[in-house]
Amino acid sequence: MQKVLVARSIFPDVVERLREYFEVDWNDGPALSQDELVRRLADKDGALTAGDPIGAATFAAAPRLRVVSNMAVGYNNFDIAAFNASNVLATNTPDVLNESTADFGWALMMAAARRVTESERWLRAGEWRGWRYDGFLGGDIYGSTLGIVGMGRIGQALARRARGFAMRVLYHNRSRVAPEIEAELNAEYRSKEDLLRQADHVVLVLPYTPANHHTIGRAELALMKPTATLTNIARGGIVDDAALAEALRANRIAAAGLDVFEGEPSVHAALLEVPNAVLTPHIASASETTRRAMANLAADNLIAALGAGPRAGRPPNPINPEVLGKART
């Protein structure tokens, strides 16, 4: 029987599905260190991971490994060049989390704009003494301008939500989306700089790549309105967290909502100190329905890639399909 590693704690019934086909080594506890991850992969044919770094050193120590199934859409934790060099298949879990992630991005944007967590902390501290006309004044969402950086599936889901709030929608993307999508979403393409200057609320939903590192830094923050908010539901490293904390402290922008961070689970200390930041621990896809769908899709990818189940040899979501059918090197 082929052997697989489930490197993270996931729903037990999904692990039981895998056990119908494989001998399963399940890490139902804290994330493995890199050394322990590599050690436990040494005799495995496949793995189900969630953000664990996988690259050439892993493959050198795990000669049987043929597929790594990532329980996420983003795969910046994978060295795809190393996957291709070793003929190891990589898979991910797109689409099933689009709406939940867009919902959460909207919630973060609104919480930042309307100072929800800031006012709650103040209330819990016993500071509320009565109504004031200027108490926690924030920014409106309805009728404002939304700037979406990254007009993929989740960006488009955000744009659809904007229609119910009578928002003008601007977007920036590596390339323009099809004219019919622009028309459907009533979205206007802008350069990144123009979008930052015009938007009242900027939401980041682009993938992390070296080219996208610090897409939002000091220069970009300086372009934004002092009343604007920034929401990041994409990946840590897309925003220069130190520069953002500095801009928030100086009120160069009004507020930020962040679900992802550079070096997470560590959070830049300065972000923890500014009151106008809403901070959450990378939970944008964390509805039970969505996380179950992600886990089951990751399992489907692993089962099919290792030649089992009804889709044997045809995993639903290969990242590098060019290695399918090739011998491991």
Rank of each mutant, 00 (worst) to 15 (best):
R161W: 13
T49I: 11
I148M: 12
S119I: 13
V68N: 01
R235V: 01
L65C: 04
H172R: 03
R19D: 08
V278F: 13
V169E: 09
N212S: 11
A42Y: 04
Q198S: 13
A112D: 02
L65Q: 00
E246C: 10
R17C: 12
E184L: 05
H268M: 04
L196M: 12
A61T: 05
N186T: 13
D35S: 05
S86E: 12
E246G: 06
L18Q: 09
G130C: 08
Y189I: 09
T91W: 09
L302R: 12
V15R: 07
L204G: 02
A293T: 10
I233H: 01
G257P: 07
L196E: 10
N232D: 01
G325E: 06
V88H: 06
R132C: 07
N186A: 15
N212P: 06
G263A: 11
G313T: 14
L32R: 03
T58H: 07
D52I: 00
L137S: 10
P318C: 15
E193K: 05
A47Q: 00
K44I: 00
E264Y: 04
Y75C: 02
G74I: 02
P315Y: 11
Y189W: 15
A327P: 10
F78H: 07
A254W: 02
W26E: 10
T49P: 01
P316I: 10
E288T: 15
A269W: 04
I233M: 00
A60F: 03
V323S: 01
N212C: 03
A111G: 13
L185S: 14
V73A: 04
E184S: 03
L297G: 11
R190S: 07
G55D: 03
K44E: 04
D194E: 15
